[in-house]
């Protein structure tokens, strides 16, 4: 598009008044703004000593967990919906026949590669039984790549660790399960 194009409207700037042309009011307002911020309260969180406030744990997307049902069994029915929904392909499930009468399958192995995960929350949304959920744990660290592949036991232990602070999301969000 050329500068002469008729569809371009050139806007006229508001002309400066005398006070602004003398530069002094602008000078003073600039300095007072910076000076005010110089002494205003700081927003930085000193991380290891001070934990950042998670706004709403219900919608926060941190480390995953696998929920347990009332009997303490893994809730997952190995339907592969989360693995299918995952855009990063970081969920790896091996399903086998369930030993319990209330479902056909259960995961023999359930692995999430936390290094590949992009924390989009699609798995949580896809899950028909609210078995996989994202907690509000935000500092996910490890010393090796292997350590960052979370297996079923680890994911269940994340549930055990967080279940008191964060009960299953589905009921709080108006779910039925």
């Amino acid at each position: 598009m050329k500068p002469t194009d008729p569809s371009i409207t050139w806007l006229e700037e508001k002309p400066l008044g005398l006070a602004e042309r003398l530069y002094l009011p602008l000078f003073v307002s600039g300095l007072t703004t910076t000076a005010r911020h110089l002494v205003s309260p700081k927003v930085t969180v000193s991380f290891p000593e001070q934990r950042p406030q998670v706004g709403n744990p219900l919608i926060y997307r941190g480390v995953h967990r696998l929920n347990r049902d009332e009997a303490g069994r893994v809730k997952c029915v190995a339907c592969f919906l989360c693995a299918t929904a995952c855009p990063a392909h970081c969920i790896d499930i091996v399903a086998t026949e369930s030993p319990w009468p209330d479902r056909e399958k259960y995961p023999e192995s359930f692995q999430i590669d936390e290094l590949r995960c992009i924390f989009c929350g699609m798995c949580e949304e896809a899950c028909p039984v609210d078995a996989i959920e994202l907690t509000s744990l935000l500092d996910l660290t490890g010393k090796s790549r292997e350590e960052m592949i979370f297996d079923k036991e680890k994911l269940l232990s994340v549930y055990d660790m967080t279940k008191d602070a964060e009960p299953a999301k589905s009921t709080a969000l108006g779910g039925t399960l």
Partner: peptide, 26 residues
């Protein structure tokens, strides 16, 4: 100071200058 303030332009004109000189490729 006041003279300098009064002599400064009260706005900036950002419309491009359309020349038809030897450098006007467009």
């Amino acid at each position: 100071w006041i003279a300098a303030g009064l002599l400064t332009p009260s706005g900036t004109d950002n419309t491009p200058i359309l020349t038809h000189g030897p450098l006007d490729v467009e």
